[in-house]
Amino acid sequence: MRIDERIAQHHGELSPQERKAAASLLEHLDDLATYRASELAALAGVSKATMSRLFRSLGYADFDEVRDHLRSLRTPGEPHRVDGTPDLAAHATQEHRAVQRTIAQPGVDEVVRLLAAARRVTVVGWRNSHPVALHLRQQLAHARGDVRLAPLPGQVMGEELADLAAGDAVLVMGFRRRPAGFGAFLREAAATGATVVLIADPTGIEHAAAASTWLECPVQGLLAFDSYAAAMSLVSVLADGVLSELGRPGSARVTAISRTYDRLVEVER
């Protein structure tokens, strides 16, 4: 298990100082292997003893074991060229495991019910998260009405937050290299009374407390760029679940939309 996954798994068991140290590890995975343990502690602003306790809490014997592991990881979100010919078979295996782990989370069913029952659904995503958010909004809009995407090009979020209230759902995509102010937005969204769902890679654990539900979705693979295969599979599972949850009204909406496509000759047949 990668160190970022271990941090996500054990985050709730860590002390506040260990969480502070863990956050530093997640932010600097690429170059941590070049530091000594004392330097890592200084970088995180914690004691060396705290850093050592964190390593043990994560299942490592000592920092040497952590260093060996860190050397195998690249900077979160930063593309690095893969030396030699990529092992595509190993890549496919890891992708398969990531998809299975993501869609099998207990919280998925809870999110499906929320998205089906909410008065309004707002799907939010910036940067790399935006295409995933756009796809989810498109799929949900086939099954139910009043599904919004934010932010729209050239727009900010204040207007979107102004209309939110209890009974609404806000689903936020938060994959790594999130924009500054991401945490502030989550807190503002939660303050409206709407139910907030966060879908993020393991580095998003620091923002999980601001959401009612957090679904972990890994993006780091064996190739140079992040993979969103698990994220897109989760979108399909959520949309399918909502359509099933809504039953006949959802199916009737799909049929009505398809008939409109035909009348407007909008898609190929």
Rank of each mutant, 00 (worst) to 15 (best):
D4S: 11
D4R: 06
R6N: 01
I7C: 01
A8C: 09
Q9L: 12
E13R: 11
L14V: 03
L14I: 04
P16D: 08
Q17G: 07
R19G: 01
A21N: 11
A23Y: 02
L25Q: 08
L26N: 01
D30N: 12
D31S: 14
A33Y: 14
A33T: 03
T34C: 04
R36H: 15
A37K: 07
E39K: 14
L40W: 11
A41E: 08
A41T: 02
A44W: 04
A44P: 06
G45F: 05
S47W: 08
T50M: 04
S52M: 15
R53A: 10
L54N: 07
R56I: 08
S57G: 04
Y60E: 07
A61Q: 15
A61V: 15
F63H: 11
S72G: 15
L73D: 03
P76D: 07
P76Y: 11
H80K: 13
R81K: 13
D87Q: 09
D87I: 09
L88C: 04
R97D: 15
A98C: 12
V99A: 08
P106M: 02
G107P: 00
V112T: 11
A116K: 06
A116R: 08
V124K: 01
N128F: 03
H130M: 07
H130W: 10
V132Q: 10
H135F: 01
L136T: 02
L136D: 02
L136K: 06
L136A: 06
R137Y: 05
A141H: 07
R144M: 05
D146E: 15
V147A: 12
P151T: 03
G154K: 02
V156F: 10
M157K: 04
L161W: 09
A169S: 11
V170H: 01
L171V: 07
R178K: 12
P179I: 06
A184I: 11
E188L: 14
A194P: 00
T195Y: 02
V196Q: 09
V196T: 11
V197W: 02
A200S: 15
A200F: 05
D201I: 04
G204S: 08
H207P: 00
A209D: 13
A211T: 07
A211Y: 03
A211S: 08
A211H: 05
W214N: 01
P218R: 05
P218L: 04
P218G: 05
V219D: 08
V219Y: 05
L222F: 06
M232V: 11
S233Q: 13
L238K: 00
D240Q: 13
E245S: 11
R248L: 14
R248N: 12
P249D: 09
P249L: 10
P249Q: 09
G250T: 05
S251N: 01
A256G: 09
I257W: 08
I257D: 01
S258R: 14
R263V: 03
R263C: 00
